[in-house]
Design a protein around this nucleic acid. Sequence first.
DNA 1: CATAACATGTTATAACATAACACTATCAGT
DNA 2: ACTGATAGTGTTATGTTATAACATGTTATG
Lengths: 169, 169
Amino acid sequence: MAKKKKREGKTTSKIFDDHDHGICFDDAIDQIENYFLKKNLQFTPLRRKVFEILIRDHKPLGAYEILEALGRDGFSSSPPIAYRVLDFLMEHGFVHKIQGLNAFIACSHPNHSHSPAFVICRKCEKVAEVDEKKSGISFASPNIDNFEVEKTTVEMTGVCTTCSRAATI
Amino acid sequence: MAKKKKREGKTTSKIFDDHDHGICFDDAIDQIENYFLKKNLQFTPLRRKVFEILIRDHKPLGAYEILEALGRDGFSSSPPIAYRVLDFLMEHGFVHKIQGLNAFIACSHPNHSHSPAFVICRKCEKVAEVDEKKSGISFASPNIDNFEVEKTTVEMTGVCTTCSRAATI
DNA sequence: CATAACATGTTATAACATAACACTATCAGT
DNA sequence: ACTGATAGTGTTATGTTATAACATGTTATG
């Protein structure tokens, strides 16, 4: 259980909290409601709950952590429940999977379609979704020898300022 | 078992075979031998075998596929065997993990230290390791607001030319 | 109000990964 | 050679993540 035991982390590093999460939360709920309304998709209590669980702390959660939270809130907590809803939310861009953590996180920029990139602190496991342009990252051409890229995964792992200040590695 | 059942795939698309694998194989064995010699690290029969298994077909293999192959060749095939050797080979840059497939692949460019990027066909699951520059991808600055990036994961999923020619999605 | 499509619930199991400890081999210093 | 440290491998058990398969309920529409 070396790298997967805890996901608490309470670090602050500029990139990790450059937003007012109260606003972020309300905005996000608004946006997802509008999106589903517009698309004639059901924003069911279960889907809403899963999204709320993810957005309320705005940190990556494992599927089984989400299931626990669902259970606490009176929903079913068998694995397929979480995975199905997560798949659905991911399809529509409101949730992303952090491959390096086997965890899921609410999208920080659901309004504009994007290829997300994530910065992950390996000590506190805090994750920031960064804008391609702001971060200096760029996938210039998503077309490589006629290979049509449908989806990109970009994750940068390291140690955030707070964690590196706090300890000598 | 939707996305994880088979890993055979026999597609050819320019990006996927722009090298002579006979040479590639020999080179790779050479390079890894020299590297370990120079670093005074043991290139044991087990480590050699795991690397050979990975390099011989040069496609991503799951840990349990590697274990089966090890078993066939008379080695122990309990999970920690594979994971330990894979970790070791990854530490030294001779193997990469493809997060999107939970699979491992021999490095195509072990000689120069690099941040690998992978192109993955979601139909045949063939994988190509691409050069950052050639592919038009670039992580310009690995430093984002003082966050020091130690490791990057870049994977591009789509459909390769051969697969897209072969079917109508 | 039937029915097709969608959504959720449940059980079981598959697939991926690590902990903990035992044993063996290698090598440096005496 | 002996001794102890280090590294490598073996084994059992278990933890963690994810899906298959099928049952039931719910919703939108004709």
